[in-house]
Design a protein around this nucleic acid. Sequence first.
DNA 1: TTTGCCCGTCTTTTT
DNA 2: GACGGGCAAA
Length: 713
Amino acid sequence: MNKNINNIQQKIIETINGPIIVIAGAGSGKTRVITYRIAHMIKNIKIHPKNILALTFTNKAAKEMQKRISLMIPKKDLQKITIGTFHAIFSSILRKEAYRLGFTSEYTIYDRQDSENVIKKILKDINIETKLNVKDIRNRISEYKNNLFLPSKKNEFFSKIYQLYNQRCFHSNSLDFDDILLYTNQLFSYFPNVLKKYQNQFQYILVDEYQDTNLSQNFIIKNLSYPSNNLFVVGDDAQSIYSFRGANISNILNFHNEYPHAKIFRLEQNYRSTNVIVQASNAIISFNTNQIIKNIWTRNEKGEKINIYGAISDIEEAKYIASSIVSLKKEKRMNYKDFAILYRVNSQSKLIEYALKERNIPYKIYGNISFENRKETRDLLSYFRIVINPNDEEALYRILKNQIGYKKTLNTLFSFFQQKKTENKNIYNIIKHIDIYHEFKKIKQNTRNKLKKIFLNVEKIHKEVNNKDAYQIAKNIIDFFCNENQFYNKKVIDFQYLIENINYYVNNQNKMIPKGDPSLSGFLQHFYLKEYNDQNNLINNSKHENNEVSLMTIHLSKGLEFSIVFISGLEENLFPSKSNLNDPSKIEEERRLFYVALTRAQKIARLTYAKNRFIWGKKRKTKPSRFINEINKKFLKTKNIPSFKTKSLKYYKYHTYEKNNINFEKGNQVFHESFGLGIILDIQKNQQIVTVYFKKFGKKKILLNLNKLKIYT
DNA sequence: TTTGCCCGTCTTTTT
DNA sequence: GACGGGCAAA
């Protein structure tokens, strides 16, 4: 037995036949268990790696898992395991099977902006006034898809739009993110033989972060793992932070109902963090009423108390973080890679980036790479897309919009194309013979020639798609594109970046897990599912050999750990987010997010906020986050909190308890003579009654003077 | 048909 | 403060 593995972990690793559910607290060695288990299955049980499917929710988590497994098994085995995000895995499967549903394997993946543009066009077409905005409609469609609701037969307004949206995507041979899961489900239910094929292939299924599955994903897992049910899921309800993506906490809470014979394991010992961090985060999460009670404990050292810094402004906050890194690095003899800076929204990274640059601190920003949303990049990608998939309306529209400025003409032309397309006419042919259609008479000869030239070229490149790899095709397109559009020559640096990524993608196929598809359509999938942006091949970063401070949103940080963690922007309206303030269940999710953030830290956690922040170009006064007050003062370096001396003191008092209660505090794990183990949710004003949530008996009010309650350690 | 200016909206979070 | 849509002037 490995000495890094405790008894429960060992038991989990060796229990091969499912269904199995592991409730794993933060830092309890969850990823270690999954990766060791996979290695054990392959090395000792001799399960063929191609029979293993490991699913995650973010690319970052997938990469982390691959990295850790690679240390234990031969590379040739690792490459045979199917490991990745739900979207990546099932998008690849759909590429092979989607023809059964009427799509081709060259289908485009529509991102958020594409989806919103489709909805805008629909609203314009049907010409109905609506109070719903495009974003709301898109979110609702997404919600419906994640819950496997199809448009209802009733002629209700939303259903109509939903239906039109699906039709348009279908005619464009395009799938949005949610479609990837939805159509996978349709594929499996309409084509039992196809399902059977994948059931046979994936005999062992592992799902990480199971608390984040939505109904659509859960259905896929359920179908695939039937009938052997060799399903292994790991999750922590306290770290459920993706409800906006349809994640449904009841999947984890009801697992046992779904699979009555499931084996249940719990991992509660934290190996990651100091005692201070473990206890402080336990206390924070206990403010949530909706949770599985766990007793997360650690044998680790007590550790430093948590430091809170209230900066005058967001700029100063960033500077404080940068200078702290410089001094902590020296003081604690740390490397840059031991530091992480976490934030609630991506836009916070900008100022932090400036501050780090100022002090020459190497850093790496994860997620949301700005170049991918730049106009020029999207323009170029439209050409890629239309070369691969001539039916891609959004890409076509974008190209035409750039070539034909005048909107009215553009719209007439575009609806003409749509009409022809439903008649199954090839878009390349229509534009090549642009002069014979009277619909085009209004367009200047000059513009017509330009269009003809573009589409002749696009068609030429299209014919080579199957013989050349993504790099060769992309180079052709870029050469043509830059020649025809003088303006873009100045933006070549963006294209350079994209082409470098394509080059890397094509030439490192044997490093990819699972092995990718070197065609341009393979690259487009890779790009749109954002698999590329976690890679370490970014040109400007190579010189630091990965010894860099990590910057990312808290969402992306889940599953990771760092010696020293900065959590920035702890302000009301930012964290918790403004849009979640009115819904108690959403506040609980924000709190879980804070819990995730804090539990990333191994040794030191520093929290920061700014008293003034630029929002939409205006400086605004802010209030410190309620979460700061939920950390018990005994875990804080209170002396170092300048903000507490300011006007906002009143605000802080609200949550602070009187000191005369000797033993009991919110978040304490307690033991009651009759009710057993529980956690203190609340203490009444007179300090004589506490509300405790008991594992077995639920919420109870306990009179303290009966002395039946003890602190459980 | 083109250009430029005003105005409203946007900041969650990821695939 | 950035960006896109809408509208009016050129």
